[in-house]
Design a protein around this nucleic acid. Structure first.
Lengths: 162, 162
DNA sequence: TGGCTAGGTTTTGTTTTGCAACGGACCTAT
DNA sequence: ATAGGTCCGTTGCAAAACAAAACCTAGCCA
């Protein structure tokens, strides 16, 4: 059979997200979209991705509601790809990944780019907090629970019992 | 050439991160690792991933310093896979993705699981803030700048230093 | 007429994946 | 002791996704 993992059976929000953006190129396409890329040729130049693959990814992203198309020229018909609200909400995912890459792949010196947080003027460093209490994340401070009846015993639960 | 995107030319922290965890299965393997999975058969049962692929991914994750192995049985030699510090730091990435999946794939009702933030007792909702000023992210509040003058260290170089 | 651009699609191979079978090395129950 | 079971992979094969480059449509330019 094919390559793609059948994330859909996983019944998990992470798997659901990966089903949309889990492709090797998709997140890079979106990274460029956040930096203003909107046209086929721009992505092709920047990423060097095969044209057929790029066409397939853009089509899938539109189908999934992450991007929309808009004609910027009637004759000849030319369309550009814009982030939807759903797509813009992926920015935290990319920033979190960028933060990890800066710290753990590039190390001390930091990555090749700096992101400046305009409101405060300092380098932006991503920090994840609990929206409810505003506290930062600490190891092991989360407990998983099934929301729906149809119970799926997780490993976490199984280990908690042991 | 083969299938795999050559992220290494991208010279970008996102691409660097994807080089480590951008594989279709890798993030699901790590998701389970955060829920306590440590052994080959556990992953195989839960994910249904092909055994050769799982073996390859685990090997790559160890090579990349995201997981370590530890013998839990001398005879027969059996090893388990544990998250390193570097690996544990990927938790924000997974939580951010989970938050997006909950909101945009599952929608109103929320995803199949709830994550409880033990310190405050409420459902954990991920929020990304600027570590410097503590303010939440708003659209277009980041500016990108190149850090280095002439030279952009490639991922390959960065890894060679490590 | 010929050349150029933008945005793809088609064609032709190469890589990777999924699957199932096999392997070794050790336990345990009969 | 021998048969079965567990755990952790490795090997071989067909199918799917991929990469590269040629090709196509549709207009525009001169």
């Amino acid at each position: 059979m094919g390559r793609t993992a059948d994330y859909s059976k996983q019944s998990c929000a992470v798997a659901a997200t990966l089903e949309v953006v889990g492709d090797p190129w998709t997140l890079l396409i979106l990274r460029d979209a956040f930096q203003g890329v909107r046209r086929f040729e721009q992505w092709q130049d920047r990423l060097g991705v095969a044209r057929n693959v790029l066409a397939a990814r853009l089509k899938a992203l539109v189908a999934n509601g992450v991007l929309t198309t808009r004609l910027y020229s009637e004759r000849p018909p030319r369309k550009e790809y814009l982030l939807t609200h759903k797509g813009k909400d992926l920015r935290p995912v990319l920033l979190t990944m960028a933060a990890w890459g800066d710290q753990h792949v590039y190390g001390e010196g930091g990555g090749p780019h700096v992101r400046i947080h305009d409101p405060c003027g300092h380098e932006f460093k991503a920090k994840l907090v609990c929206e409810g209490c505003g506290e930062a994340l600490t190891p092991g401070d989360l407990t998983f629970e099934a929301r729906h009846e149809g119970h799926m015993p997780t490993v976490a639960e199984a280990m908690a019992k042991a």
